[in-house]
Design a protein around this nucleic acid. Sequence first.
DNA 1: TTGTAAGCGTTATCAT
DNA 2: ATGATAACGCTTACAA
Lengths: 342, 342
Amino acid sequence: MRKRKGSERPTLFDVARIAGVSAITVSRFFNDPALVSTERRALVAAAVEKIGYVPNLMAGTLASAQSRVVAMVVPNISGPIFAGTMQALSDGLARENFQLLLASSYFSQDNEERAVRAFLGWSPAALVLTSRFHSPGTEAMLDKLAQPVIETWDFDPARRPLQVGFSHEQVGRDAATHLVERGYERIAFVHNVVPDLSARHRCTGYAQVMAARGRKTIEYTPTAATPVDGGAQALLALTAQGSRRRADALFFANDNLAFGAVLAAQRAGVRIPQDVAVFGFGDYAMADKLMPSLSTIRPPAQAIGEIAARHVLQLVGGDAAAREAVPHATLLTCELVARESA
Amino acid sequence: MRKRKGSERPTLFDVARIAGVSAITVSRFFNDPALVSTERRALVAAAVEKIGYVPNLMAGTLASAQSRVVAMVVPNISGPIFAGTMQALSDGLARENFQLLLASSYFSQDNEERAVRAFLGWSPAALVLTSRFHSPGTEAMLDKLAQPVIETWDFDPARRPLQVGFSHEQVGRDAATHLVERGYERIAFVHNVVPDLSARHRCTGYAQVMAARGRKTIEYTPTAATPVDGGAQALLALTAQGSRRRADALFFANDNLAFGAVLAAQRAGVRIPQDVAVFGFGDYAMADKLMPSLSTIRPPAQAIGEIAARHVLQLVGGDAAAREAVPHATLLTCELVARESA
DNA sequence: TTGTAAGCGTTATCAT
DNA sequence: ATGATAACGCTTACAA
């Protein structure tokens, strides 16, 4: 007669009773089958099958102090940008029966802090972040954290946590150099419609190249609500006859802005790249199908997720030797995809 | 001297010791503060703050047999289709400190079954699925499950679990009727590039309308790898001079296919809608920015997520009265958005 | 309002 | 190779 009601699911002891073995043998059957003799393995397997037993991972985590959850904070779950990374990380972890816990920050450090705090209660095996810019509160929590923290996308080898990413400044330099070499004279940078620190770093790289070549920088920040509308707004504003900020090439903070610009140009009769060149960032799904097709820079989104997954598995799943092998920082490169628009 | 090493984080007992109260008081402080006197509340709060205590949710779940995780299986995490639902569900749950656990099925029932089995170990408070078509194995697990199961997107009131969705057949009927009423004669349905049962149901609705009006159905299944390429392929094939299956209106299984068609039409010099009308499904981000803008049907993606979240919270967070109030099934409607392409 | 004792389902530890 | 026992960190049940 139980004194308390539990989950009402079969437990390890139920399996053990039916199989005629002890509970720990069933535990070993799941965690290290090699330790169990062939005969008992069959007995346990039959019992598991018979009652449809599924191990309670919460209890296992509590007992072993080793969880198989990895928590990740992304700016938003629904956007196209981090989708590849999320998917690759989730798939890589799933292969080793790790689960991915997701939360969105909406580009807000406060939301990120809230999410990290909430995650802590799950004792995740590792924490994956998509930015290196955190609130002081978040930094304090990360400092105390025993588990590995992996910062992705933004790369800064000076920071202590594990890094998997690329240099946004380099992206800015690559794009600006490309546009300069194509002969464009008045190259503008169009910011995102929401505060976006990574985009600001791409802008810094762009500004470096402009300065090095004695060019003037032109910056524009759309006020529209969505990136697509913002891109359209920027295109019209920066190509207007007689505008003080008239440009012959637009480097957009991301492809969605650039999409908006290309589509608005079609409607407005602005010719790309003859009247104005358009360059994006992200290489989103339809960049190559647009008319004209979009020149852009493709970040290694999937690779970031895969490598992050590998790091997690080596750090928390592997042995000490593997642990040594994990590099502190992995700097990936982006690919410049030159198409018709610039 | 501890006999085993735990998580190395402060525990409830650490807080209790510092605050000079018992452990259960600290527990109540977090779960039902009203039960704790104001003075002790202050003591506990101070102690919590001092050592940065975060409750171990795994231990709490184990003890209470009440988890605050909701598991969801989507076809893919990175696609645009379910993004709104995932986001709305995640946000709705986060507000009550529930966590969302995600896995992808890639439209495969085997993967779905694997994901559901893996989820069971987490004793989720509820299970959210994005389809009503499951493998026998999955059905068997769902039958045994004590927790609520919510099927979303596909609506079938005949099924036992909770339903939040819309009728894909109705979508097919609406689109077909729209095209018929616009005067198109030869209306074709273009299938998805992967097996997609929901899309098949939209096709069924389309076929019903065609039959009712004595029209011939034309179906096309692209062989391209991606939806955008498949849409382009379909457009070229179904508008080719002298083709047996030549059509004057194309109803695509989704907007990505339709995007591909519109972009390919621009390049091929096919005029939309003069030469051929294009109709999609999904109302993805750029449907209204395309040239021509895309006529399509917008599913209530966010509403599905919000309502699913509400159901979960009422069922597992609320009292018995709220439980009664949850309707078995919620049938939502889609909005037909008539733009330039059809 | 507060506390004590027992138990949630699993694994670490030690013994055989 | 297998098992008995205690412990993981928390909450329920009951008592005061």
